[in-house]
Amino acid sequence: MNNLRENLKEQIIEQLNLEDIKPEDITNEGDLFGDNGLGLDSIDALEFIVLLESKYNIKISDPQEGKKIFKSIDTLASYIEKNK
């Protein structure tokens, strides 16, 4: 289960081209979006949708739906586990 979280961190770094960030810099609970988190924005949310489809075969067709799912590594991981 923790493996999923670690994989996600690496996949996020690659998909979003987060050159300066290492997987260990991303916490499981911390905000991914907004200035208090990793500073990700609405375009990154769309990149998450691409990532979920390509790596986990999960389709999210309403970007609004993504807001809650992509809050943190934990919320993302539990969504993937539920919908795999």
Partner: peptide
């Protein structure tokens, strides 16, 4: 071949 494509290079 996917329904979803990466938007970053477009914007």
């Amino acid at each position: 071949t996917s329904d979803f494509i990466s938007p970053t290079s477009f914007i």
